[in-house]
Nucleic acid binder design. Structure first.
Lengths: 202, 202
DNA sequence: ACCTGGTGTCACCAGTCGGTGATATACAGT
DNA sequence: ACTGTATATCACCGACTGGTGACACCAGGT
């Protein structure tokens, strides 16, 4: 029985976040959010207008995906291109693995378009673009393509790992498996860049 | 008002398939399936016991994922390893792209575990294992890892493309984009295999 | 003391969900 | 023609969904 609209708003948003991370996006709904937040559902309509409005508010006021700058800042900018590309791929995967919320949102985005998934997609896109641009490998369109495909592959593997659902015996949550995958990706990227260098020398 | 249990069973299964491909897996449910199949829902319980039973029956009696053998049969077994690996990745992607049902099931499997998604996963796994085994590259564990990651990446891109949802401007449904991706993957795999050959010669 | 506006609580709506019991109907064996 | 059985239809259940109107409460201003 607190009389503080801002606090109530935050309680609702926090409830939504807990609900998504604990039950997955399939469970979200006005009733479930209200229950989780310990709040009457009519307040959701009062403060956010509708379920879509709540998702929009969540997208605006919550940090949806890990900030890539925090990860990439300490990257030596004068490192060889293949090392930078490898770091982009692996750090991206590590960041996703650390955030169950982001994992759920990635999966949600594959299933449905709504204010939250759309905003999340834009946020991810911006992160990725910025990372690539800062690394100075943008001009090489094909390298960007390879990096993107690899990132997608790791994202998929991480999503599969969520429910103890490994693919081809690759359980990315197991450290030794992850290390093997990282080794393979690293050497594949290296080989790709070196083969292109060799080609341009011809 | 036909009195033919087998025909009714098939009507139900066909309705489920239409529903999944048209509305996506989020729409499936006893009522929706019965509506789509033009059948009273009590018949679903009669013939399949429950919703889970229906999914199980669907998994048993329907072709869930494209048969890889049909694709790989005409593959020259004496081709270089990197060509075989590339073919595995690209054919896998093409097969998935051609089957909206399989796409939906892949996405479903990321979200929920039920008799259908479990059976689908096993089927995919078997396909993949067989393909890799027949290609004779199984002994090279790291190559298998790379191939798997790349397949996952393309699967993810295809899922993103489903709802006009490209990632980093990579819309895999556009032929020119797909060709570029295929080119990059091909040369990355080639470079990876060649770098390993060079290494083993040392 | 009174009113006003923001806040929280409760009860309810129509619709859908998965699931079931009772009943009508068509067909096969006699 | 009659009966038995498998098949299909209908009506209903409790629980849940998204959504809304009515009301209780508590604050601050006059």
């Amino acid at each position: 029985m607190q009389r503080d609209s801002e606090k109530t708003r935050q309680k609702i948003l926090a409830g939504l976040e807990r609900l998504i991370t604990r039950e997955g996006f399939t469970g979200v709904g006005v009733n479930a959010v209200a229950r989780e937040a310990g709040v009457d559902k009519v307040l959701i309509y009062r403060y956010f207008g509708s379920m879509g409005g709540l998702l929009e508010g969540f997208a605006n006021e919550k940090k949806l995906c890990p900030r890539m700058e925090d990860i990439f800042d300490n990257l030596p900018v004068d490192a060889p291109h293949h090392e930078i590309a490898t770091r982009i791929v692996l750090d991206h995967a590590r960041a996703l693995q650390k955030s169950p919320l982001a994992q759920e949102l990635v999966c949600w985005k594959l299933t449905e378009q709504n204010p939250l998934t759309i905003a999340f997609g834009k946020s991810m896109e911006k992160n990725g673009m910025k990372a690539l641009a800062e690394m100075g490998i943008i001009p090489d369109e094909e390298a960007v393509t390879l990096v993107t495909v690899l990132i997608c592959g790791l994202q998929y593997l991480i999503l599969r790992g969520r429910n103890n659902n490994p693919m081809m015996n690759i359980d990315y949550s197991k450290p030794e498996t992850r290390e093997k995958v990282e080794r393979v990706i690293s050497s594949a990227i290296k080989a790709f860049f070196e083969s292109r260098e060799g080609e341009s020398e011809k």
